[in-house]
């Protein structure tokens, strides 16, 4: 009541226009209005509940209901309502996966030179360090491109499905951009590039008695022609 009183002082209605004395909501409407509003209310309520049910089945672990209705749920969720909240779950990532690249270059005198490995992830890390607002180009681009690659390739680095091919081209373009950006003008022409990952586990905390193997393991891809 007090709020309404304050309202009246702050917002005088224009003269000659008394507020209509309607009950709030559906109850204040005429019969056709009530029918329209009731139908809309039912449709909106059903849609909202169906949407939330679909989102729930999408984010929950695979279960009886989500398996039975997988087709309908996926049709509703993908592509715009896709979501994944397993950030650092069930376990956080416990290893640093660095992506390294090297180039084979045709020099001016026609010879082929294989250059040294460059740690592209370390360059990302250096750009992120002491930054309050790290860029997605540094934090997500290469990291997620590598995830995309490994998720769409089998153990022998063979592409799985159409996405495998896309991920190869993506990774290649990222690596090439970065290799080219740091090259001197007359450093020759890049003919082929090779990528590898260097995986090293985060050492167990000093206050724990666990032992962690912190050696670096490499996964080397084949050479890609540019």
């Amino acid at each position: 009541m007090e709020a309404n009183g304050r309202e009246a002082v702050e917002e005088p209605l224009p003269p000659g226009a008394p507020p209509p004395a309607r009950a709030p909501g559906i109850a204040g409407l005429s019969a056709p209005g009530r029918v329209t509003a009731s139908a809309a209310l039912a449709a909106v309520a059903l849609t909202a509940c169906a949407h939330l049910a679909a989102v729930f089945l999408h984010v929950a672990p695979a279960n009886t209901l989500s398996k039975r209705h997988a087709g309908a749920v996926d049709a509703w969720i993908y592509p715009e309502f896709e979501q994944n909240w397993k950030l650092f779950a069930p376990n956080p990532l416990q290893q640093n996966i660095a992506v390294e690249a090297r180039a084979q270059v045709r020099t001016r005198d026609g010879g082929l030179v294989t250059e040294a490995w460059r740690d592209l992830s370390a360059e990302d890390g250096a750009a992120i360090r002491h930054s309050l607002l790290p860029s997605h180009t540094r934090q997500n681009e290469l990291r997620r491109a590598w995830d995309f690659f490994t998720a769409s390739h089998d153990e022998e680095d063979r592409p799985v499905g159409e996405r495998g091919g896309l991920s190869e081209q993506y990774l290649k373009r990222i690596a090439l951009n970065r290799l080219r950006a740091a090259r001197p003008g007359d450093g020759g022409e890049i003919v082929r590039i090779q990528l590898r990952s260097a995986t090293r586990a985060v050492a167990a905390p000093v206050w724990s008695d666990e032992e962690t193997d912190t050696r670096t393991y490499h996964r080397e891809l084949s050479w890609w022609t540019v």
Binding site: F88, P92, L93, Q94, N96, A98, S121, A122, D124, G125, I128, R129, H130, S131, L132, P134, Q139, R143, V202, A203, P205
Partner: peptide, 12 residues
């Protein structure tokens, strides 16, 4: 502890 040791997630 582990995210704190990831190079991509330890700006400080």
């Amino acid at each position: 502890y582990y995210p704190l040791g990831l190079d991509y997630f330890s700006p400080w």
